[in-house]
Design a protein around this nucleic acid. Structure first.
Lengths: 275, 275
DNA sequence: CGCACCCATACCGCAGGAGTATCAATGATG
DNA sequence: CATCATTGATACTCCTGCGGTATGGGTGCG
């Protein structure tokens, strides 16, 4: 199976439309139809149920879509990591914008003090993006937050576990309470995060892209938020935090791709686990 | 990057010889040379240092070899799993021959009693083979033994942890001892397992391929072995086991590829973790 | 019933992958 | 030191197979 066929299939499976998929791929529709047929022969299974009105994934097609995406990422990762190995030493670390800031700073300081430390390029991104970067080779290490981020397929090491708190503007009715429970939040318009597809779910509450943005909204009195307690760091006094005693604890973990032979990654992970 | 190029590169990197690699791939040597050059242009890094006398991997080449193998396995896995999804439900479980027999039997029984149980095809293989099968899609679940088997890149769930014991023929000088320490084994000719390449390390002691074979050798009085205590199960009385009190404990885990959306795998894992 | 939409088929042109012959560089050999 | 064997690179040719255009055929809609 060639990556070209796999890329074509993923495009059709995502668009559920040969014409649009062809356009996205920059080719005409007929060769795309043929490529899919050839792929079906090669795999030995029908992948798409096509009528003139709609294209639907078969059971086998759904499996190939999920596994194929991972495989394409793995191929990309191979090329990118080889390239980066050629360009010289250096690490790319990703973290969610605005999350674990204090921990991240300590980690970078501690690692920089190591004898064989290499340059660390810190990349901040929106939630759910880190896994992708780690998988397709654009990053070497990530700070993830269980249970929010998926750690499947990576090696991880737990760093810190902490409770969550409600962040709200000073003067908010709930801000005087010494502690809160999840039930107290039932009617609160909590911010909405982008779903897997990039769209936002329906509902009240502001749309946010990352934690930094959210903190700004809270400071402006335009939002309340549930965040790990360490997000308190560096926040102005006009934001009040109240512990949420029955919220699930959040664990910050350092994650890296398995089979990573890199000395630098190993060093950084070791430093992180000793913080 | 196409899988064809990656396959070609892996062949050359493994053979360290363009001629032999070409033969293995079933093509002539010149197109192989050109394909590697094209790959180097595409990746943007020199991958092989070639003289007329030897071919050596560069730093980038070593990275591409490791990552490329994983990527090729992922592509194979995608095709195979799609094919198997088409052929109907069914699981392939791998375990080391002769290891965790009792646990395996209990697991299969318990799972078969589940309401939506599918057929489970049990595959036994030599040590170190399971990871490969799981990675390239020939298997869906595996029983692994930490710390002996690499669990990197898989999701795992611990099942049981147990100590290790020395297995020796009745009448052996050490067989009368109530317990042993690692230091007592210093001069014993322990069996040799195949290394990653398939070859055996130098030394005394018999060469063995799997646990079943080893148990047979112990029964015949031709070997002594260090094995988990559960391997005692079903062994004849002419084999004596003496606990090794300071040997590292062995944990049997059930492992499966991440992103596994399969209901059957989830069920089997759930059953396993409740044993 | 005609129309719009959409995937499949037919056919053609060409890029690029593969083969054969040969060259060039390097280390071994007498 | 001249010769030879080995091995990867180059030159050239052939042909497979990918991609493009034109068109067919099936399906839901007004």
């Amino acid at each position: 199976m060639e990556t070209r066929e796999l890329r074509y299939f993923v495009a059709v499976a995502e668009e559920r439309h040969f014409g649009r998929a062809a356009e996205r791929l920059g080719i005409a529709q007929p060769p795309l139809s043929r490529a899919i047929q050839q792929l079906e022969r090669r795999v030995g299974a029908r992948l798409l149920d096509r009528t003139t009105r709609e294209v639907a994934l078969t059971e086998a097609g759904a499996v190939l879509l999920a596994e194929g995406r991972a495989a394409l990422d793995a191929v990309d990762a191979a090329a990118r990591r080889a390239r980066r190995a050629h360009d010289g030493p250096g690490l790319v670390l990703v973290s969610k914008a605005g999350a674990s800031e204090e921990l991240l700073a300590k980690l970078l300081d501690a690692y920089a003090a190591e004898p064989d430390a290499v340059e660390v390029d810190v990349q901040l991104c929106g939630p759910g993006q880190q896994e992708r970067l780690l998988r397709d080779g654009r990053a070497d290490v990530a700070l993830l937050h269980r249970p929010f981020d998926a750690t499947a397929g990576f090696d991880t090491e737990d760093l810190v576990t902490e409770g969550q708190a409600l962040y709200l503007p000073a003067g908010h009715p709930l801000s005087a309470r010494p502690e809160l429970r999840m039930a107290d939040l039932a009617d609160l318009p909590l911010p909405r995060w982008p779903a897997a597809g990039g769209g936002y779910p329906e509902g009240p509450g502001p749309e946010v892209r990352d934690t930094a943005q959210l903190r700004q909204l809270v400071s402006l009195g335009r939002a309340v938020a549930v965040l790990p307690e360490s997000a308190r760091h560096g926040l102005a006094d006009d934001v009040v935090t109240v512990p949420l005693v029955d919220a699930p604890p959040v664990t910050t973990v350092v994650a890296w791709p398995p089979h990573s032979r890199s000395r630098a990654v190993a060093d950084l992970v070791r430093v992180a686990s000793r913080l």
